[in-house]
Amino acid sequence: MSTVMAVLCLGLAVAALGAIDIGNLYFARREMQRTADLAASAGAQTISNGGGCASATQSAQNNALSGNGLPSSGTVTVVCGRWDPSANAGQSYFSTSGAPLNAVQVTVSETVPYFFMGPARVIQAVGTAEATNIRSFSLTTSVATLSGGLINGLLNGLFGSSLNLSVLSYQGLATTQIKLGDLATAIGAGSMSQLLSTNISVKNLVSAMITAASKSTTLGVTAITDLGTIEAAIPGGLNVALGNTSTTNGLLAVALDDPQAAANATISLLDALLVAAEIAQGQTAINLGTSLNLSPLASVTAQAKIIQPPVIAVGEAGQYPNGTWRTSAHSAQVQIYLNVSLVSQSLNLTYLGLPQLVNISLLSLPIYIEAGDGTAYLQSTQCTTQQTTSQSTIVATT
């Protein structure tokens, strides 16, 4: 009986010691995974800040060995590459090929001894982190070409309103940038994917823009008041899709495999307003005559039809493996009819020293214009810790 009990006790002791060894192994593995993940994150932030692979490797190694206490006996291997679900196989979606570089993969190895159950064992953990530089841009009216009368006429034609804002008001709207994440919160969308699947009235969109603008760090002095004026002038029944697809004209063309990464991207209030207005109007003819007031010399009849509205592009620089650009925007494709009628005038002129009265008869000049859309794509972008070295290259064709 005593022998049986001794055997049982010995078996229990061996099992207990084995459990301690296995538990220590899993604990070390968990700590190693944490080290690999944090080191990869540090490397990815460096590579996205324009430091290149060498700097990213150094950042990852320093983070693992100094910041997270990996023993000197451990090893850290850092590989730079690209995280891209559209081009690379899962589960990791990471590859050492592809451009631009946006990810770092860190492998941490360490020899972990068994206390009771045999020789040491080498274990490792792999962490992958991605940090993407995102840019947003559009091909719409720029601050340099703003004219209070012309842009008031354009918006009044699109909305059927009677706006009379100043050039300074429109400049304030153009320079105010709002985050897409703040816009999503204001609309009540729980994620960027929900935001992009939203259809909303233009009036409610402007109301959400007012809420998002209150959090902007570039808020124009009168931007919120001016948006309130515009919101009050917009009629009901004008709706806009927020996500642009192959079958739907939408406000935002987000070229990211993970749309949530666009939450911190910013767009101009004026760009958003103009693009939303042109989308909502559809292909209805717009009367622009009031915005081209050349009285008393001429009267102008002007109508425009937007065949394809513009879009605001949000995404990453570079090309897909098939050569197409990841992030591109286009301006509106329009048809315009103008009829310029010179009004009959009597002018006092001097000829050979004698006053002469000259009558100018009415001249009607009809003009038809069809303008194709211009396109632009994001060639490269670099975000660093210094504004002077942060830049994007956008290539446009008319």
Rank of each mutant, 00 (worst) to 15 (best):
T245S: 15
K215M: 11
L357W: 00
L146F: 14
L347C: 04
F116R: 02
S201Y: 02
L338R: 05
A212H: 03
Q171K: 13
A103M: 07
L165F: 10
K305Q: 15
A298V: 00
A184G: 08
F116G: 00
G43N: 01
G157F: 03
D373Y: 13
I279E: 09
N293A: 13
A212F: 08
S246N: 15
G67M: 08
A103I: 08
L270Y: 06
Q61S: 14
S346C: 04
I279W: 06
G69L: 14
S216P: 02
A396C: 02
A42D: 03
V311K: 01
T218N: 09
T247M: 06
A272K: 00
S147R: 12
T398A: 04
T389S: 15
A261N: 12
N204I: 01
A329L: 11
L165W: 05
V4K: 00
N359L: 14
R326P: 05
V104K: 03
S390E: 09
N24F: 12
S73E: 14
Q61L: 11
G81I: 11
G81C: 07
I178E: 03
V300L: 08
V78S: 10
Q260Y: 01
S48I: 02
A332D: 13
E316H: 05
S72K: 14
V108N: 04
T324I: 00
N102I: 06
L238H: 08
N152I: 08
Q386R: 09
L357Y: 05
E316P: 02
E370G: 09
L288D: 01
T327S: 04
S66G: 07
I369E: 06
G236C: 08
A64S: 10
A233N: 06
N339I: 10
D257Y: 11
T384V: 06
Q194T: 14
I307A: 09
G181Y: 04
D226R: 15
A332Y: 10
L227S: 08
Q171T: 14
T385G: 13
P113T: 10
E370F: 13
S86Q: 10
I151N: 12
T175V: 11
S207P: 01
G228H: 06
S390P: 04
A376T: 10
K305L: 13
S97G: 12
A16P: 00
T381W: 02
Q194K: 06
S344W: 03
S97W: 00
L163C: 11
Q319I: 01
I224V: 15
A6P: 02
T176P: 03
T111W: 01
L270F: 13
A298K: 00
V311P: 02
A36P: 02
I367N: 03
T176Y: 11
L274P: 00
W325K: 02
K203F: 03
V206W: 02
Y93C: 02
S55D: 11
V167N: 15
A13M: 13
N293H: 08
Q391P: 00
G220T: 08
N156K: 06
G118Q: 07
L242Q: 10
S361F: 09
L168C: 01
V202A: 05
T198I: 01
G81K: 07
T3H: 09
T128A: 00
V221G: 09
I336Q: 14
A276T: 07
G127P: 09
G318E: 03
D226Q: 14
G69P: 04
G372F: 03
Q260D: 15
L292T: 01
A208S: 14
G51R: 05
A189V: 06
G52T: 03
S331H: 07
T35S: 09
V334E: 15
